[in-house]
Design a protein around this nucleic acid. Structure first.
Lengths: 239, 239
DNA sequence: CGTTACGTTGATAGGAATCAATGAGGGTGG
DNA sequence: CCACCCTCATTGATTCCTATCAACGTAACG
């Protein structure tokens, strides 16, 4: 019923040349003239508040989106109405490739914290910079590898899946220049469970066990401090 | 150590204009002049025998590949040496997008039956037909949706995963104009288990149970006859 | 200040893994 | 041609991990 337009957001004007995403964005490697053209294709910067929806599963595909700040979750709804979290996206990641194949997005995107997001009209982008596609393909390829690797981790024990989840987040924060041993979980235990194919109780038990064994500290339920990344990573090796 | 070149294959010459893939291939929608250029980019048609390797994980990315006939399996090796089957590809599907992001393939491809495969040199393709990229993006998007949906099914019971596997194969054969209620499994029970995150014993038990309950017939271990697709599909609904 | 959602913890149940034994086919070499 | 080996598939018995069920505590919020 409701669409992304129902949610509160403001439009901001930030030019691509002054955007902080840098090489993470599709603009990477473009000439300044091309970047000006990109600016015209990317006419909206959206402010999306926590809980706000960027787009809904089955909406017709029109745009790709680049996350400038904040994070979002990917949700799919199966035919029986069960919602399931498929992943989360952080700044510098491009969303929307799933809509390209059929012309409809295959998942819904919701903000799990306040986000700034670039809306990139696909047709306009194509017209403005025909040479952009290799960059897009690389981003799509990265998305493929990302999903592929999360599929791999479903083959291990609950504890390993949780450890892998934490290390994956940590590494992605590190790559973006954030502190990678101290971060906030924007997902509930139940949502993490949905993401990792486990129950909320199991997530809770695993996190507390990791805390008891001093691999991590948990502050205020949601804030994670990693004491020693290498020791944590070692947990993935044992069988 | 060994590379794809070690495996037996012959080169065949088949022009894109006379290729049977049709709209499944990236050539779909191109003018005849563009198709001639594509022919120059696609200079090899490879005959790959059962067990032969198309490329190996970590090989440097150079080409995309289109399966003309036969089927292949996708294998990834984790750091501890464990091999795991990530999926199988059928005629009309494009392989190799996983190598685009980093310049290295993230998985190995092995033939599970005799295959004819088009090798599409990526750089040559780019030079020959700069307008090809939207088509490529669609294929990449399809790949994303495909992996995404197989990730979804890891959230269900063993029996449902097996049923979903059979129906998925059946549907893909149907879309390609093959008989979709009678097909051969080119994977062992153990490989299906690896694909679905189950053990060989569980796969065996599930298949035999489906046979006992007359949803399917199993001929000679590997050949599957589906008695009633709708009844089989109904098994996915119950909880 | 009740209501609600979230998180923690314990007890129990269930489903798939594991272990084990057997059989069936396919290939090889004597 | 047959004995042997090896891989694959099947089936049963048992174990183990995670889901489920249940109870309670806590924080946020109107």
């Amino acid at each position: 019923m409701s669409t992304a337009a129902d949610n509160l957001f403001r439009e901001l004007k930030i030019s691509c040349s002054s955007c902080s995403l840098g090489e993470l964005c599709i603009a990477h490697g473009l000439s300044s003239r091309e970047i000006n053209k990109l600016d015209q294709a990317v006419n909206h910067t959206i402010l999306l508040k926590t809980g706000g929806m960027l787009y809904r599963q089955d909406d017709t595909f029109k745009s790709l989106y680049a996350i400038k700040s904040g994070s979002v979750k990917v949700i799919t709804q199966s035919q029986d109405g069960q919602e399931s979290i498929m992943g989360i996206y952080l700044p510098g990641e491009i969303i929307g490739f799933d809509g390209l194949a059929n012309g409809n997005y295959q998942s819904s995107i919701l903000a799990i914290e306040t986000c700034h997001i670039c809306k990139i009209d696909f047709d306009a982008l194509h017209l403005a910079i025909p040479t952009i596609h290799p960059q897009l393909l690389k981003h799509a390829s990265k998305a493929i590898n990302c999903i592929q690797s999360s599929y791999s981790t479903t083959k291990t024990s609950a504890e390993k899946r949780v450890v892998n989840f934490l290390l994956n987040l940590s590494e992605r924060y590190r790559q973006r220049g954030y502190i990678h041993t101290d971060f906030y979980l924007f997902l509930s235990r139940s949502e993490i469970g949905s993401l990792l194919n486990l129950t909320a109780e199991t997530i809770s038990r695993c996190l507390r066990k990791l805390e008891r064994e001093t691999y991590i500290n948990i502050v205020n339920k949601r804030r994670i401090l990693i004491n020693d990344t290498n020791k944590l990573r070692a947990l993935l090796q044992d069988h």
